[in-house]
Design a protein around this nucleic acid. Structure first.
Lengths: 215, 215
DNA sequence: GTCTATATGTAGATAGAC
DNA sequence: GTCTATCTACATATAGAC
């Protein structure tokens, strides 16, 4: 992902610390606005306002609206994948490759990161948009599918009798439920009164999905 | 829902058959375009092109973009709710109020309608947009929440030990999975090779969610 | 009810000063 | 790299002829 092709032109020089800070403000603002309003609902001007930067700066760092969206999604994807694969490696060390443990390893990093940094909560909304819109299938394929396949391989080994497509169905159901929990607290509250703490909700999610896999 | 307040002004006269046909073309087109592109991604011009009508006609029948969206969602909501509640009534007659049966009664109508009429498939996408965007919370609350509450009541009776919020969580997980199956065939295919027939996928969905409720 | 023409606002993108 | 000013296109909405 971070490897550079030999033919790639070398950068002129390292960007200044100030430029890097501006760049980060731009991407943080894009993340927030895209997450709240979606790709079509967001405007470059909204992002500029959120970043406290002029409109031209957004274009300079983002390279156009679509490229900015793509880069915003890709920015945190490596961190998320690594956290998931690390959790999987730790799980393999304990030899507890149950559906429960595997789902926990896949989902827990997202919740842990969201708890520590509200920008990860925005990122979850962004991922939900990307996952449900065929228009961004290519982004999903490059940012999320490889790790998903790794976990599906492990889940499939536990249930060699099930077909691959059946594993994929159950995995999509589980990811949908996970994203619903991360992004639709309002919906849960509207239907069920006062919600419980998120740690508990996370345990409920794992139980729900693990039971589904066991069935 | 269809009741009219006493103070409502009476319509001048019944609309002509031709006007009714135009009106239906407008709403069918709106449904298709909103479903494919979302509220912000859709334009009145796209809808006009899909309907084969001039732009002004869309405004005349729809009453502005937002009102048109709301009316498009509401148009099929009664049919869907009635089908769900009828299935629930039939279930009560057989006295098989298991989570499996209840989830089947709630979800099956959507799949049956989608199989017979592709416009219901578009409607499913539209419902997915509405369900995941807090901006349309009011539409969800009026169109879908009452029926959802009825089914949650029945599910809660089967598990009086569980808290209401826990039932709501599991219900949201289940609905998310259902909408994923109705709208994200491409996602499942991308992750799991050749998918199985939809009847089978539906059974898998029910098993997955029922197991989650049982846990 | 239907359709054309138009008013008004705002979108994404860029050119060029600093 | 940063910021201002502006270009061009297209959005929603409406007014008024038919």
């Amino acid at each position: 992902m971070t490897a550079m092709l030999p033919s790639a032109p070398p950068r002129k020089r390292a960007p200044s610390a100030r430029a890097l800070a501006t760049r980060q403000r731009v991407f943080d603002a894009a993340e927030q606005v895209f997450a709240r309003q979606g790709f079509d609902g967001a405007t470059i001007r909204d992002i500029a306002a959120a970043a406290g930067e002029p409109v031209g700066t957004i274009h300079h760092h983002g390279g156009g609206k679509e490229a900015l969206f793509h880069a915003t999604v890709a920015r945190r994807a490596d961190t998320l994948s690594r956290a998931r694969l690390d959790a999987l490696a730790r799980l393999r060390a304990t030899d507890e490759l149950t559906p429960d443990g595997l789902l926990r390893a896949f989902m827990q990093p997202f919740f842990a990161l969201s708890r520590d940094d509200p920008r990860w909560r925005d990122y979850a909304r962004l991922v939900a948009f990307v996952s449900t819109d065929d228009r961004w299938r290519a982004i999903s394929a490059s940012c999320f599918d490889p790790t998903a396949q790794t976990f599906m391989d492990a889940l499939h080994q536990r249930r060699p009798d099930a077909s691959r497509s059946r594993i994929a169905e159950a995995f999509v159901f589980s990811v949908s439920a996970m994203l619903a929990l991360l992004t639709s607290q309002g919906r849960i509250a509207a239907l069920g009164g006062t919600p419980v703490p998120e740690d508990q909700q996370f345990d409920h999610l794992i139980h729900f999905c693990a039971a589904g896999f066991a069935a």
